[in-house]
Design a protein around this nucleic acid. Structure first.
Lengths: 158, 158
DNA sequence: CGCATGTCAGGCGAACTGATATAC
DNA sequence: CGTATATCAGTTGGCCTGACATGC
């Protein structure tokens, strides 16, 4: 007789991981063909919304990468001439990160097909279900802040 | 004049990653307190549904871990006496993985609080929205199979 | 013989913790 | 002075590709 109880709920973190991998599986070949890692692409994509440059701290926050990890990633991207770093004029503690023309070309050339995949997805799921997906993910992301109100910060636009 | 176009869609892989991290953030302390990595917990959780043992290949599939990675993970888990490996009697090529009593105790002690978090989540979102979330994630996971019907396999129960 | 299964070998980008320099 | 920002130093687990031993 088997006494071990099974889970009543399907493994949600695993499903989120697999869903992410399913999406990345489509675009990863295009990234790798351009020598980009997942994280590097995340950085480029964030920088796309900040042509004037972005502080390292904010970049880390929006790309969801820890500070020390980002330092290494930016070093490699700098070596590949995808981004450039410059000490801020106002606050010499912070560093502004900007994507180079080469970095811009790369992200430009990638965004086309990626945008197309979103269109296809919106068509497959239906626009309202895609919106629902976004809303549900937002709700999950908001969970920890509910439990630890002290850490509640201004919402990020990602 | 700024000519760079912004994305019309929010970064879905990033949101999936952040949603996963939001969930893991809650349970990771409990895992680490027991010396478990994320992947090790994924293995234990899968094995929980297979008390009689599971072949390495199937385990890799269900835990969503590549073969060579799983080999290393299982080695460490074996050293920690969380699982044991045994060559299959029917097919000497394959290896059966089983969780030890110690591994079972660990997963048993963890499943309680985790189950509670699912209950809380179901309450927060509402049961129907949680179901919708599962359905949407399944749809995303099914995407690559639609595009490459040759790789279509039997659906996994995860 | 070809095919399947699992492991080994090895390199690597990144996660993560803790300490440190610098500027506010 | 204390705080904030970014980087450094160093360890580690895991990803991943390619080769390999073994059994079907």
């Amino acid at each position: 007789m088997e006494t071990r109880s099974k889970f009543r709920y399907r493994n949600l973190p695993l499903l989120l991981l697999r869903a992410r991998e399913a999406l990345m599986q489509e675009r990863r070949p295009e990234l790798r063909a351009r020598g980009l890692s997942d994280q590097q692409w995340r950085v480029l994509r964030v920088l796309r919304n900040h042509p004037q440059g972005l502080e390292t701290g904010l970049l880390a926050e929006q790309a969801f990468i820890l500070g020390p990890s980002l330092t290494g990633i930016l070093s490699r991207m700098e070596r590949a001439e995808l981004v450039e770093r410059e000490r801020s004029a106002e606050d010499a503690r912070s560093v502004l990160v900007r994507s180079t023309p080469r970095g811009q070309e790369l992200s430009e050339s990638l965004s086309g097909t990626i945008e197309m995949r979103y269109e296809a997805l919106a068509e497959t799921l239906g626009p309202s279900r895609l919106r629902e997906l976004y809303a549900l993910l937002d709700a999950l992301i908001a969970l920890p802040e509910q439990e630890a109100p002290a850490a509640a910060e201004e919402r990020l636009e990602v």
